[in-house]
């Protein structure tokens, strides 16, 4: 693998050379095993093709485009620090990719709402996609708005998060949860289009939403809704076991002991704290993190319970349920 200085020299000479590439391949192949493929893999598994996709995207989107590799090579004082920083970068990349699929879902809902709600009207051909222009049905003029994205974002900021009842992407958000529920999404679009002084393209509306709600950039590719899901049913034991193993493998030694104690004490936090000789706050914090990981890969409450039981089984009986 070489020393840190070998890797720096290789980067200066070749960009992504043989040694760095092998290092990145190993980090991808090993780190993705901690994430449930049903949520994080484009192919619902972590085979060679899925790992190659992750590796390519990670390199292009972060290591090259954001100069992350240059930054980490310059920043690390030891080879182990570099390996740790690269692993963190990949973890952030995987998590952000998943967030983008959630944001993409919101964008689809914006388009559907504009098309289906009589409050809004299109003033251009529906075939132009992101360039399709929209205004309020009650507005006579269809001339394009001259306001910039920044100015429209200022208008969008006129409605507070509280007013819009914004549901942020958080640890307990259900998968694909809306960031704005439909009535508030309608209010939001009405507010922006009503003050835009003209018609606005769908692409601009999405840009405004991205800045207003700090959403990640929309992916260019969209899932085709007509393709049948390859996801197995929530009752499928194999899927539950895979998800549970991904949860346990992301805990560390201390966290695994605390969650085990929590199960042993049948959910009594203070009892678990005594067993682990730590504070109840620490038990709550760790259990919260574990539950968040379970929720993240659950389709339903029943599914979450099944994964929780499997996690318990892995930790206490040292086997899958």
């Amino acid at each position: 693998m070489g020393t840190l200085e070998d890797l720096r020299e290789e980067y200066r000479r070749d960009g992504l050379g043989v040694r760095l590439r092998e290092l990145l391949e190993k980090i991808v192949w090993s780190t993705v095993r901690q994430y449930p493929p049903s949520e994080y893999s484009p192919y619902n598994n972590w085979d060679k093709a899925a790992c190659e996709d992750v590796l390519s995207d990670w390199i292009l989107e972060r290591l090259w485009s954001r100069a992350d590799l240059q930054a980490m090579l310059s920043s690390a004082a030891t080879l182990q620090q570099l390996r740790s920083a690269l692993t963190t970068s990949l973890r952030q990349h995987l998590t952000n990719k998943r967030r983008r699929s959630i944001a993409s879902n919101l964008y689809k809902r914006v388009r559907a709402m504009l098309r289906d709600n009589s409050l809004f009207r299109s003033v251009s051909s529906p075939l132009v996609g992101a360039e399709e222009r929209w205004t309020l049905a009650g507005h006579g003029s269809s001339a394009p708005s001259t306001l910039s994205v920044d100015e429209l974002t200022q208008i969008a900021c006129g409605l507070s998060d509280n007013h819009l009842e914004v549901v942020r992407y958080g640890p307990f958000s259900q998968k694909l949860s809306p960031i704005l529920r439909n009535p508030r999404l309608r209010d939001f679009l009405e507010h922006v289009l009503g003050r835009a002084e003209g018609s606005v393209t769908l692409g601009t509306i999405i840009d405004v939403m991205r800045f207003r709600f700090s959403l990640p950039t929309e992916e260019n590719t969209e899932l085709d809704d007509t393709i049948a899901s390859t996801k197995q049913g929530p009752a499928d034991e194999a899927a539950v076991a895979i998800n549970a193993r991904s949860v346990v493998s992301r805990l560390n030694l201390e966290e695994a002991e605390i969650v085990t104690a929590y199960f042993h004490s049948e959910g009594a936090v203070s009892e678990a704290a005594k067993l682990c000789e730590c504070t109840p706050e620490r038990v709550r914090e760790v259990v919260h993190r574990a539950v968040a990981m379970i929720c993240e890969c659950s389709e339903s409450e029943d599914d979450a319970r099944a994964i929780m039981r499997s996690v318990e089984s892995l930790l206490i009986q040292h086997g899958d349920q």
Binding site: R12, G15, K48, E52, S56, I59, W64, Q70
Partner: peptide, 18 residues
């Protein structure tokens, strides 16, 4: 672990050098 194939790799000269 198999060897992973990369279909898209940025050109050598395009990597940033601060």
């Amino acid at each position: 672990r198999p060897q992973l194939h990369l279909s898209r790799v940025p050109n050598v000269d395009s990597w940033p050098h601060w």
